[in-house]
Amino acid sequence: MSTITNTIFSPELAERFDKLVTIYPVRRSALIPMLLYAQDEVGYVSEAVIQEIAKRLDLFDLEVRSVLSYYSMLRTKPAGKYNIQVCTNISCMLRGGYEILDHCKSKLGIGHKQTTADGQFSLEEVECIGACCWAPAMQVNYDFHEDLTPAKVDEILAGYSDGKGAK
């Protein structure tokens, strides 16, 4: 029942979006989840994503851009397959968050908001992710990793490189 022909999304996601716009009292409420889920699938919020979502919600592209640029998890450039987000906010900082960040930097050879040449990993320093009591913590995509040490980070990264994921 999607009104969109030629969707840029997978059939599953398109179907999910068709449903998503119906569950709220107003369609526009679906905007932020849609941007996030589209980013999960496409890798970032591309121009095409903006335009299709605007169409689905009957919004101007500009409105979508205004909203999109407000939220820090949404990005308009591709990231690595595994986006490593190291928290350095106070609780993590006190327990070695910067050490973890620096370790990731040297291990991967990239800096904040950069991506490895093979496109596997990207790195971001982020604000508090709600894992303060298990600090230092980071997220790889949506997976939490807690009580980190440099050695543990090595293990986790190796797990992702092997394609096994970690945990």
């Binding site: 107003v26 526009r28 409420s29 939220y71 604000e127």
Partner: peptide, 22 residues
Amino acid sequence: QTGAGAYEVGEESALMESLEGK
């Protein structure tokens, strides 16, 4: 509903805006 990275959205009225897709 999910947010997308914004502390301010925890403030009650900003939260309502966010839930309305703004």
